[in-house]
Design a protein around this nucleic acid. Structure first.
Length: 672
DNA sequence: AATCCTGGAGTTTTT
DNA sequence: CTCCAGGATT
């Protein structure tokens, strides 16, 4: 137990009750969790299969698993659960699907699936037009995260508009049921509901999970916290780790208040603060502390480090956005030469994805290698969505969404009128589209020629399913992709043959992942059919994509949003676009979410190990026209003595600090 | 059924 | 400006 400091040790060794670890940025929180798991297994003799650790991302789960297995000798860690909340939820539903009334092979709808379902519902029978699609989707998601049923939403609707959305919510849930599908929020909600309704099942799971650890606890939403509470029961065998100052997902339903709530729900809670930072210079931490002090705090916390004072933070004001991007590029080039750094030591962080574009151009121009993380994901690609839809329909014929996606992909010459007839027939008979294909009664509704095409599809699909069950499922899947000549279809529909090749490669990568997962579970007791159902469900959760950690080795400047940077660290960080309306973002100003924007800034600052450079543009082109910008209010919240300013005029800013919050802006007025 | 055109919007998005 | 979705057009 060397390496750990006193606070960390305390957090690891305290297992007599619920424990909240307030882990500041860079304070070694993952070490605490992994060491605690090892301690539980090796010293406290808790079998690994009775310990569960929950994270929000697969990446975090993978990393944690890896680190535990390095700490625990031999096979002692076997059976340990380290997974995302959603994955645990999926496992619970999988094991209990009978009690829940699901058929095996249920589908998981991702955000896009949910969106298209909602669109359909809204079009069908309400005065809501699809402009409100996002609003409706958010509202429903929020309701689910807050454990509000459609019924309760309807009862407590404040306005006719809200009432309409509540009705859509009701229909949406019914549709999901009919499709034998769940959405992401359901993966938490349904287990919670199940545990509340069936005490016997809950007790079974409580027996399974004797000790629970939760990472990034500030990001839990209400239903996730309730799931945690249910699983822990009154045993208090719980450790959560989190940092309220790094809560940047409130807009997505996260409830940082859950940290305070923990004190209320568990009065015997032990709170342990980790304030020593092992990442950044003390200058950087001073700046971060100073900024975040502007937020109200339930738990006070001040980071410190022994990494030396370090360089001043620099704030560079450039003439316009173009100059800003140019400046960042040349800074990286010259610094790299002077300090003999690698490109990979640099990260450029921004508020919105669109900001990456200009930077990208400039970096290219200077031949600086870079990597943009985030943006459109593997699973957003049409070819992946297509093949996933085939796979989903294969294991869940009731998945109408998947059916509609692929019925004409590739072209099967089935038109909208045919599908409409099929749709109305199916809904009249209360069956899924695929099930309706086999009904004799359909003959009177659809012209023979079209019907034949549908029937051919149905027979083919059934044959594929049969092959999957009777022989190697992966071979059957490959045959399926051959059958539909998806490769040919890709060539036909890609802008270039190069793009087509890339897409085909993606598809095969997907099939490979599927194969890997099937191979891995070969020794399990489950039969083939069950395994492929599982594997496909997990694919949706991106769980088994050993995403090629690939060019992690290569030397590239990292570009990403501030959100995406959480949990990472870089020797040299650039934060660009430090302007009002950008950071804080305009919408957040309107909605009074300044505190979360401040935390976002805090997250950005604390990514930096050695140097931090903030930039802003005096003028910025937005929506086609140039307009003057205002420096971010957060710049005024940095301690002046730790900052070097450039581009704010002739006067030294330090002489103007007394004027308070308006300092930088008034200085600019003088200058202009 | 495929392509063109027009208008409207323009954050962040671990699953 | 630039990117989409959806409607209109062929």
């Amino acid at each position: 137990m060397t390496q750990l400091n006193a606070r960390q040790k305390e957090a690891v060794l305290y297992i007599d009750g619920p424990c909240l670890v307030l882990a500041g940025a860079g304070s070694g929180k993952t070490s605490v969790i992994t060491r605690k798991i090892a301690y539980l297994i090796q010293t406290c003799d808790v079998p690994a299969r009775h310990i569960a650790a929950l994270t929000f991302t697969n990446k975090a789960a993978r990393e944690m698993k890896e680190r535990v297995s390095n700490l625990v000798r031999g096979s002692a860690a076997k059976g340990l659960t380290v997974s995302t909340f959603h994955n645990l939820g999926l496992n619970i539903i999988r094991r209990e699907y009978r009690s829940l009334g699901f058929k095996p092979g249920f589908s998981i709808f991702d955000a896009e699936d949910a969106r298209s379902l909602l669109k359909e519902l809204m079009l069908k029978d309400s005065d809501l037009d699809s402009d409100h699609l996002n609003l409706v989707q958010n509202k429903i998601s929020n309701w689910k995260n807050d454990l509000i049923t459609p019924k309760r939403a309807l009862e407590s609707a404040q306005s006719p508009g809200e009432q309409t959305i509540a009705l859509i919510y009701q229909q949406y849930n019914q549709a999901l049921r009919a499709y034998n599908a769940v959405d992401f929020d359901d993966l938490i909600l349904i287990p919670v509901d199940l545990f509340q309704q069936h005490n016997d099942i809950l007790i079974r799971w409580q027996k399974k999970i004797r000790y629970l650890l939760v990472d990034e606890y500030q990001d839990t939403n209400s239903s996730q916290y309730l799931l945690v509470q249910l699983l822990v029961g009154n045993r208090g065998s719980l450790t959560v780790v989190g940092d309220d100052d790094q809560s940047i997902y409130a807009w997505r339903g996260a409830r940082p208040e859950n940290m305070v709530q923990l004190k209320v729900d568990y009065p015997q809670l032990r709170v342990i603060k980790l304030e020593q930072n092992y990442r950044s210079t003390s200058r950087i931490l001073r700046v971060a502390n100073h900024l975040i002090a502007n937020n109200p705090h339930e738990f006070d916390k001040a980071l410190w480090s022994e990494m030396g004072l370090g360089d001043h933070i620099r704030v560079l004001r450039c003439a316009h956005e173009d100059a800003e991007a140019e400046r960042v590029a040349t800074e990286i080039l010259t610094q790299r030469l002077r300090k003999q750094n690698k490109f990979r030591d640099y990260a450029i962080l921004y508020r919105g994805n669109h900001q990456a574009r200009l930077l990208e151009m400039k970096l290219q121009h200077h031949q600086i290698p870079y990597k943009i993380s985030g943006g459109s994901s593997f699973f957003a690609k049409t070819e992946i969505k297509d093949v996933m839809a085939y796979l989903r329909l294969l294991v869940n014929p009731d998945d109408d969404n998947a059916f509609l996606r692929i019925i004409n992909t590739p072209r099967r010459h089935i038109g909208t009128s045919t599908l409409e007839a099929l749709g109305s027939y199916a809904s009249q008979r209360q069956i899924s589209l695929f099930a309706a294909l086999d009904e004799v009664g359909l003959q009177s509704h659809i012209p023979e020629k079209n019907l034949e095409r549908l029937v051919r599809f149905s027979h083919w699909m059934r044959q594929v399913a049969k092959n999957c069950a009777s022989s190697d499922p992966i071979i059957s899947v490959r045959e399926m992709i051959d059958d539909i000549d998806y490769v040919g279809w890709m060539h036909q529909n890609s802008p270039s043959s190069k793009a087509a090749e890339k897409r085909i490669e993606n598809v095969f990568y997907l099939v490979e992942s599927l194969q890997k997962s099937l191979d891995k579970t070969e020794d399990d007791d489950e039969d083939d059919e069950k395994r492929i159902q599982d594997a496909i469900a997990k694919l949706v959760l991106r769980d088994l994509l050993e995403r090629q950690e690939e060019e992690d080795e290569s030397d590239q400047v990292q570009l990403m949003t501030l959100h995406a940077s959480k949990g990472l660290e870089f020797p040299h960080v650039f934060m660009v676009g430090m302007e009002e309306d950008l950071l804080p973002h305009r919408n957040s100003i309107d909605e009074n979410n300044i505190e979360e924007e401040r935390r976002l800034t805090y997250v950005g600052i604390t990514r930096a190990k050695k140097t931090l450079t903030m930039t802003l543009a005096g003028k910025r082109k937005q929506f086609g026209e140039h307009s003057a910008t205002t420096p971010s209010r957060f710049l005024d919240e940095l301690p002046k003595e730790d900052v070097e300013y450039e581009g704010f005029g002739e006067h030294n800013v330090e002489k103007n600090t007394a004027q308070g919050a308006e300092t930088l802006n008034s200085l600019l007025n003088l200058f202009d």
